Simulated scan of single mutants.
Amino acid sequence: MERTRRRLAAVMCADAVHYSRLMEADEDGTLDRLKDYRDVMSGLTSRYNGRIVNTWGDAVIIEFSSVIEAVQCAVDIQTDLASRNADLPQATRMEFRIGINLGDIMVEGDDIYGDGVNVAARLQELAPAGGITLSQSVFDQVRNKLALGFESLGAQTVRNVSEPVEAYVIRLGGKNEPCGARTADASETGAAADAGQSHVDEVLVSGINQARAWLRRQSKRVRGCVFMIGFFFLLNLVTSGLGTLWFIWPSLPFAMMLAWRLVFRQDQTAEKAVHGND
């Protein structure tokens, strides 16, 4: 029987979010997607010199000799999977939580055991969907070596670990969410902004058309007053901008004439209506 050995290693634990619900909705599609996503993880693990230790159900345990490469691998995994999920309906997306711990592990054959593995599994449970949570030991090694943002979760009490665990979440894309989700939110926000701008444009065009129709119904004197007020306003805008509104003073006689003509005309219209009723 092979003797149990010990060594320091970075351990990554990844687990699918809402896997049972996905299987209940579509067993074949979910299993195919799980296999595809595991292939992604396997390829990136090899690139960063890691070793897939075990896969059971929807979980994956990976061992790395370098904590830097472990974190880089996790970020690439979440980025790649978020990109793939972005093309899928929300109900069929498969997201993973990832936890990474640097600690002493026991090695027996191809399997690994011990608190180093257990803490990684508990950190995975603390991660947001599509996110990555690190232990204090991992954070200390990567915070000044990788261009990533981090958010402290403080000391967390987790299952089967006697002491609280200091945990940190990596900010993917500047947020605690996968890049794919962030892109989707940005797209929705952009669409809403375009819709709002379109509505503003419609209202503006409608207002201009109504103003033109009203002006065409007025007498020459009323149109002349409106023209002169508009002329002085444009001259003010060109020469002084809106900082100094001097156009009010030369426009005042035309504005008074315009008001008088409009009021006088309304009074005449009302008087004719009264006599007509008599």
Rank of each mutant, 00 (worst) to 15 (best):
A127G: 03
F150A: 04
V142E: 03
R97L: 00
R221N: 08
V138S: 04
R143K: 15
A191S: 13
A120W: 03
N176I: 10
Y168P: 04
G103S: 05
V119H: 04
V142G: 05
G99I: 01
Q136R: 13
Q210H: 14
S135T: 04
I105E: 07
A195G: 00
R216D: 15
V222S: 11
G190F: 11
I132N: 02
A195H: 05
Q156M: 07
I98G: 08
I132P: 08
Y113I: 00
S206Q: 14
R217I: 03
S162C: 01
V107K: 12
M94C: 08
R97N: 00
T189S: 08
N118G: 03
A155G: 03
A193W: 01
V138E: 01
E95W: 15
V107L: 09
I112Y: 02
I208F: 13
S162F: 01
R171H: 09
G130K: 02
Q156I: 04
S219I: 03
Q210D: 11
T157C: 03
K145S: 15
T183W: 14
G196D: 14
N160E: 12
V169R: 14
A155M: 14
V165N: 05
W214K: 12
G174F: 09
K175S: 11
G154H: 12
H199W: 07
R159M: 07
I170K: 07
Y168T: 06
E95Y: 15
F139R: 07
Q90H: 13
A191R: 11
G149R: 09
L134C: 06
S152A: 14
L215S: 13
T133Y: 01
Q124Y: 02
Q218W: 06
G190D: 10
A191T: 08
A193S: 11
A155R: 15
I105H: 07
R212Y: 10
L204G: 00
R171N: 10
G116L: 04
S135L: 00
Q197E: 09
E108D: 11
E166L: 08
L204H: 14
L148H: 01
W214Y: 14
V107E: 06
R212M: 13
N160I: 05
N176P: 09
A213C: 01
V158S: 10
D104K: 01
N209C: 06
G114L: 00
L102S: 10
L172K: 07
V200R: 14
T157N: 12
A193D: 09
R216E: 15
I98K: 04
Y168Q: 04
E163F: 04
N176D: 11
R171T: 12
S198N: 13
Q156N: 10
E95Q: 15
S162N: 09
V203C: 05
S137I: 05
D111P: 01
I208P: 00
G190P: 00
A186P: 02
P178F: 04
S187D: 13
E108Q: 13
V138P: 02
Q210V: 10
A147K: 10
E202F: 03
M94W: 08
G103W: 00
A191W: 01
N176G: 13
D185H: 14
E95K: 10
N101K: 11
M94G: 07
T189D: 10
V161A: 07
E202D: 12
V158K: 09
R93G: 06
V158W: 08
